[in-house]
Design a protein around this nucleic acid. Structure first.
Lengths: 148, 148
DNA sequence: TAGAATACTTGCATTATGCAATCAGTTGAA
DNA sequence: TTCAACTGATTGCATAATGCAAGTATTCTA
């Protein structure tokens, strides 16, 4: 069904190629859920603050899996659930996301809402924030027996 | 005409807020044209490799100007032309764009096409690449009498 | 002063999105 | 063993965004 522009890319430009994969309103928010908000299930992402639609979530998860940014395993406690997680390719977006957050904090400070302790880390030591975030993901993977 | 979701934002999340401004298929490519490709006129952007439509380009330039990422001045050689350039807020996206390019180079290496000398700089010394890029923009602004 | 160039705008067909409802497989309690 | 509830989707339909071709207004050039 959904497979239309899965593989088309507009040019060889590295920015254009990346944007063909993640340059839409929702994909990076799903990646955010997986990286920063510890949301690994469909229903968790569905109930995120921004209110993504069920069909869009389903579509984007498929596209992200097709692009090898996201993978999934069955939930250990229940066969009807799935656990989504980021591949190495997906986890590498953490630098990018933190850059976006830094830009937002700097330029959209009056409309964004960042918890103070995260704000300080983001502003003063983004490299440490990346490191801690990657460690969290690593711990999650170890706890769930994901081999990467 | 075009003003629908200009100011709505989905949440206070810094990623969501940024994506409300630049999270679409075209906005960052326009920023790329202005930052890296020295395209400052409508017709230059219109003829970029990715083939943006005239109405979409017009719409995105308006939105980027409304978001204070882009500004414009009349072309000094011709009153019927305009020169677009990045505000400080827009120029600050250079870190982000270089991060995207690095990610692309690393993970989409087989489909992206980067000139060798840029590739080396991007891979080995991205900070210098940022610095050189910002200097180019500064030179352009000085040459065109833009005060920032 | 005619014609070309530039920066858009308009009309219209196609595609994507949002929302509500529905579906199918799994689970757990009765 | 049955059946309601849960979960990860899919479907139908209305609305919005996009793509493409053509048109318009203004300015420069010859």
């Amino acid at each position: 069904m959904v497979k239309k522009n899965a593989h088309k890319h507009r040019s060889g430009c590295p920015l254009a190629c990346a944007l063909d994969l993640i340059g839409d309103h929702w994909s990076l928010l799903i990646v955010r859920d997986l990286i920063f908000l510890d949301r690994h299930e469909y229903k968790d992402m569905l109930s995120s603050e921004e209110g993504i639609s069920s069909n869009i979530l389903s579509d984007r998860l498929k596209k992200l899996e097709a692009a090898k940014l996201v993978a999934s395993i069955p939930h250990p406690e229940s066969g009807r659930r799935k656990l989504y997680y980021l591949t190495a390719r997906g986890k590498d977006l953490v630098y990018l996301l933190i850059d976006i957050a830094r830009w937002s904090e700097k330029h959209l400070g009056d409309i964004v809402d960042i918890p103070p302790e995260k704000k300080e880390l983001l502003t003063n030591n983004p490299d440490l924030m990346v490191e801690l975030t990657l460690k969290d993901l690593d711990d999650w993977e170890k706890a769930h027996g994901v081999k990467t």
